[in-house]
Structure formats: C-alpha cells, structure tokens
C-alpha cells in the first residue's frame, strides 16, 4: 500500500518533469520534420560534398588530430595523478587509521582533523567535476594562453574530480579482511594501502581511467571551440566560415580518432585488467 503510493508519486513526478522540460526547451516536431526543416537538412548535407581532401588540408587535419589525441591522453594522465594525490584524504578508510577494526578512541582534535581532511578533499573533488571542461578551459586560457596546454589542464582538473570520487569509492569497498590481517601483523597505513587495498582495487581503477580516456577524446575534440587546441579549433573555424567541404573531412577525422581510442582502450583493458 505504502510502496504503491511512493511509486505513483515517483511516476507522476517523472511525468511532470518530462512535460515541463518539453515546454521549457521549446521543442517542436514540425520544426524538425516539417518541409522547411527537411529542406535545410538536405541542403546542409549536400554542401558537405565533395569533402575537401587536398594534401594541405589533410596534413593540417592530421596534425590537429594528433594534438587532440595528445590532449586527451595527457589530460587523463594528469587527472589520474591529481586524483591519486587526493585519495589519501578522500578515502574514508585511509583517513581513519584504524578503519580495519574499530575506530580507536583518539583525541577529539585528531578526529576533527580527520573529518576536516576528508571533507575538504571531497569538496575539492566535487568542485573539480561540477565545473565543466569548457569552463575550466576558458579559465586556463586566461592563465596559460590559447592552445593545447590549456586543454590538458582543463581535462585534467575536471576528470580528476570524476576519477577521484570513483577511485575513493572503489578503495572504500575492497574486502577488508585481508587488510585487517595486514594491519594485525604490524603494517602501517601506507603498507595496508599498498599490499591490501591497491591490488584488490587496481583492475577497477584502470578500467575507470580507460573509460574516462574514451570520454576525454570526445571532450578534447570540442575544447578547440573555445581555443584550447586540437581538431575542435579547426571545426569551429570551418563552421563559422561556412567551409562545409572541410567540415566533412574534420568530422571523419574526429570519428576515426574516437574509434581509434576506443580500440586502444579496449586492448589495454584486455591486457591489463
């Protein structure tokens, strides 16, 4: 009876949310599928052909594609580094030393310090991931200037927020019994982490990092729109200057890049995880 009530309430809320979203976004089916909409689409697709395959453009696109690849890779690497740096504070079981048995009664000050470390590490991670990559990119362009370096920093910081939280949760959920055994034979907190938690968590950590790399290759391609280098920059120019025939080449290059990274990631996952 009670559960029924909740399901009904939930269903109604979802329905209301959908209706409101539809109204608020001004979604209109006629605009998409009406005669005018169809004509515009056909025109756009027509203008894409034939794609521009001149050697000069291809060389340029190749360079930009490599840049995008580098940005996504370095950004993800930076993110893993940043996330790892914050793990000591963001993982509850690492913050509280005796987490593998029961909390040892310690001074109030010590507990306050632990709570503060945990709270601030988690808050920092939340800030990192709450701000989108594009905003981080705009910010870093102000600091380090236009170009791929700003892209790396932007991806690194945002992704660190995502990975840091995922990593912390994986580490908090490892089997504690082997860890308790290590603690009981005199291992320090760092040693329990190295010998007990990390080996158990490593496959999942790697898997998450690789997945974020796949996400970041897409993000890196867009970052150029705000001037952070890579394919996006050229995509932006081509769109704005109505260079439609270049556009198809660029879209194809982006697609190829995404497929390449997905394949690399799948291969690495099979080898490492």
């Amino acid at each position: 009876m009670r559960r029924h009530g909740w399901s009904l309430l939930l269903g109604l809320s979802l329905g209301a949310l959908t209706v409101w979203s539809l109204l608020d976004t001004g979604l209109s089916l006629p605009a998409l599928l009406g005669a005018e909409g169809r004509r515009q689409m056909a025109l756009f697709v027509q203008r894409l052909f034939p794609p521009d395959l001149s050697p000069a453009l291809l060389r340029q696109v190749g360079q930009r594609a490599l840049e995008t690849l580098a940005v996504s890779f370095l950004g993800t690497l930076l993110a893993v580094g940043l996330a790892a740096g914050l793990l000591g504070g963001a993982t509850r079981t690492l913050v509280q030393g005796a987490a593998f048995a029961e909390a040892v009664p310690r001074g109030k000050l010590r507990r306050l310090g632990q709570a503060l470390a945990y709270g601030s590490a988690r808050a920092l991670l939340t800030l990192f991931r709450a701000v989108p990559e594009l905003i981080w990119a705009l910010l870093f362009i102000l600091v380090v200037g236009l170009g791929p370096f700003a892209g790396v920093l932007a991806l690194g910081v945002h992704t660190a927020g995502v990975l840091g939280r995922l990593f912390a949760e994986v580490l908090e959920n490892v089997d504690r019994r082997p860890c308790e055994a290590l603690q009981a034979l005199g291992a320090s907190r760092l040693q329990v982490f190295l010998y007990g938690m990390l080996p158990q968590a490593l496959p999942e950590l790697l898997s998450f990092a690789l997945y974020r790399w796949e996400v970041n290759i897409r993000a890196a391609a867009i970052l150029g729109f705000v001037g952070a280098g890579g394919l996006g920059q050229q995509l932006f120019v081509a769109l704005n200057l109505f260079l439609h025939q270049q556009l198809l080449t660029l879209i194809a290059a982006t697609l190829g890049l995404v497929i390449l990274v997905d394949a690399c990631s799948a291969l690495l996952r099979r080898l490492l995880v």
Partner: peptide, 21 residues
C-alpha cells in the same frame, strides 16, 4: 601499537591473503 602487533602473528580461518597478489 605497531610494534606490539609485529610480535603477534595471526592466521585466520579464511581471507588472510590478498587474492590478486
């Protein structure tokens, strides 16, 4: 505490070891 624990070795019924190591 660590020093004292070092002098006591424990064997548990199961789950003593880290399986992936």
């Amino acid at each position: 505490l660590r020093q004292v624990r070092r002098t006591i070795g424990t064997i548990y019924q199961q789950y003593n070891l880290v399986p992936r190591l």
